[in-house]
Amino acid sequence: MSQTTTQQAEAATTAALAPEQMDVLDQLMKPEIQESLTVLVANLPKLAEMTTILTKTYDLVQTVANDQVLIQDLKGGMEEFVKPIQDKAKGIAQAAIEANDRSHVESSTIGLFGMLKMLKDPQVQKTLRFAQAFLEVLAEREQQKR
């Protein structure tokens, strides 16, 4: 009789459970789920430590992201770093545009003597030295790869 009462109580409990709860219970009965739970329980200390580290990292990121003074300082620092590069790039671009315009206006032919005269120009010499050094560096790197 007590067994019948216990079975009736279990049946009543099972009937009283919502369908979502039944799904959870069905899932818990699967062997692979039970194995996964065993692994999780075994690794709880590591998971707790990782959670603590992630929480601290999250708090730090939130603090940094909401610190307007730090953001403005970083922005100012980046602008100080980028501005000279930006100005130099603009200067080079403007010089290239101006040189292109001049080359389209100028229609005279540059002969051998004109080229010899150009070789004396300090800017041409500087450019040639740079080109020579650049090619030497490329050759050295090519030799190192072999």
Rank of each mutant, 00 (worst) to 15 (best):
L112R: 07
Q143E: 14
L119R: 13
S108P: 01
A48G: 07
D73K: 01
E79R: 10
P84A: 10
A15C: 01
D59I: 02
L54P: 00
L44I: 12
Q7F: 06
D26H: 15
K56Y: 02
Q123K: 15
A15R: 01
E142M: 11
I97L: 07
T13Q: 11
D87Q: 04
L112P: 03
A133V: 11
R102G: 01
I97K: 10
F113T: 14
A11F: 07
I110A: 03
A131F: 11
S103L: 13
V39S: 00
A12C: 07
K120F: 09
L28C: 08
G77T: 08
D73L: 07
A16L: 06
P45R: 03
R141W: 05
A96P: 02
M118F: 04
A18E: 03
S2Y: 07
K75E: 06
A11W: 03
A18C: 08
D121C: 04
V39A: 08
R146T: 10
V105Q: 05
K90F: 08
T5D: 15
E136Q: 14
M50P: 02
I97V: 13
A48C: 04
T14N: 06
H104P: 00
R146I: 02
L17V: 07
L74F: 15
T4H: 03
K126A: 10
G76T: 13
K56R: 10
G76A: 15
Q132I: 15
L54V: 05
S108H: 12
A11E: 02
Q3K: 04
Q21V: 13
T6F: 11
G91I: 00
N100W: 08
D67A: 03
R129F: 10
F130Y: 12
F134L: 06
R102D: 01
A9G: 09
E20L: 13
I53L: 01
P84N: 12
Q94R: 05
Q62D: 02
A131S: 09
K90M: 10
Y58L: 00
R129V: 05
S36L: 05
R129N: 11
T63H: 11
A96M: 12
T63L: 00
M22Q: 08
V137H: 10
V61M: 03
D73H: 01
A93Q: 14
I97F: 06
V24N: 03
T57N: 11
T4K: 00
